[in-house]
């Protein structure tokens, strides 16, 4: 437990160092880079940047100051919006989180259901699910997005094409975000259940007269839960990064599209902040999933 939390901290430090240090890897003077463009390089402006980032301090001091500020919620000022980065994030985070939550519900429910169906039914159902998921993982989300917009947004007119706000607006983006995840989860569920089904205790349960439904629910699926929960956690954690593409494709105002805009306008403070947030969330969620394992499998408890 303590080792895991220490590992979490170490990874967070390392990644934040990479994110911070990246600005120094840029060709040329970091001041020019941090100033964003090449047109607005008045000496006063550069001096202001230099002071804002404490560029005259040693590198490690700068890093420490930046990290300390970030930890207390001060993520610097956006060059593009001339606003506190923290405020920008706070304004856009709810929509992104709703999208991720929506997509997570979709992929967990349908992914597990499809996987169970494939494992229990076998035969044609299984082949169809396998073929479907193979295809689903081969289509990049932005292509899925454009197809969904074309079909359900424009051709059939069932969903609004652009903009956000309501859950209705978020349905197509959530489906797009969930599709690849759904394929992965159904595959893991199917595989894990097929492995569990072969175990002796399942035969024992069958020999004691339990119905197939109870056997699948209480033994096969229960035993398969470990890998399924782990994968669901990992995929959910990675979804924040997935919003970069999906929000861009659907023109949603979230932190994913904020990152894309920041990069295209050379707004490095915003880029750094969004990356830091996404990476931190990813590491935190994967650690939580790791800590959940003993609850699912009592055998892990003793080893820990």
């Amino acid at each position: 437990m303590i080792r895991k939390l220490a590992g979490l901290l170490a990874t967070l430090l390392a990644t934040s160092f990479v994110i911070f240090g990246a600005s120094y890897a840029a060709p040329g003077d970091p001041v020019t880079f941090l100033a964003g463009g090449k047109e607005n390089l008045t000496p006063e402006y550069l001096a202001a940047i230099r002071a804002q980032y404490h560029l005259d301090d040693p590198f490690l001091v700068q890093y420490g100051r930046w990290l300390g500020d970030a930890a207390t919620g001060d993520l610097g000022r956006s060059l593009q919006y001339n606003d506190q980065v923290a405020d920008l994030l706070a304004a856009r985070l709810p929509s992104t989180l709703t999208l991720v939550a929506y997509a997570s519900v979709l992929f967990v429910v349908f992914g597990v259901a499809l996987g169970v169906l494939a494992a229990v039914r076998g035969g044609r159902t299984d082949a169809a699910v396998v073929a479907g998921t193979t295809f689903a993982t081969s289509v990049p989300p932005f292509v899925v997005a454009t197809v969904l917009i074309s079909l359900f947004g424009v051709q059939l007119g069932w969903f609004p094409v652009m903009g956000g706000g309501s859950l209705w607006h978020l349905t197509l983006p959530a489906v797009t975000l969930a599709l690849g995840a759904l394929a992965i989860i159904s595959r893991v569920t199917r595989q894990s259940m097929v492995e569990q089904r072969e175990l002796d205790h399942v035969t024992v349960a069958r020999a004691s007269g339990l119905s197939e439904r109870s056997i699948v629910g209480r033994h096969v699926l229960r035993g398969a839960l470990g890998p399924i929960v782990t994968m669901c956690g990992l995929v959910t954690a990675g979804m924040l990064a997935g919003t970069v593409t999906v929000e861009t494709a659907f023109g949603l105002n979230g932190i994913g599209s904020l990152l894309v805009n920041a990069i295209n306008t050379h707004d490095f403070p915003v880029t750094q902040a969004v990356l830091l947030l996404m990476v931190a969330a990813y590491i935190a969620v994967t650690t939580v999933v790791d800590l959940l394992q003993p609850l699912i499998d009592p055998r892990v408890r003793r080893r820990a």
């Binding site: 175990l199 002796d200 205790h201 024992v204 349960a205 069958r206 020999a207 004691s208 007269g209 339990l210 209480r218 033994h219 229960r222 035993g223 839960l225 699912i296 499998d297 009592p298 055998r299």
Partner: peptide, 21 residues
């Protein structure tokens, strides 16, 4: 029949029980 008339005892008790219950 399986539930109430015939019962079976197996070779390896460890694999006869669901390890997570």
């Amino acid at each position: 029949l399986r539930a109430s008339q015939v019962s079976m005892i197996y070779q390896d008790p460890r694999s006869s029980l669901n390890p997570v219950r």
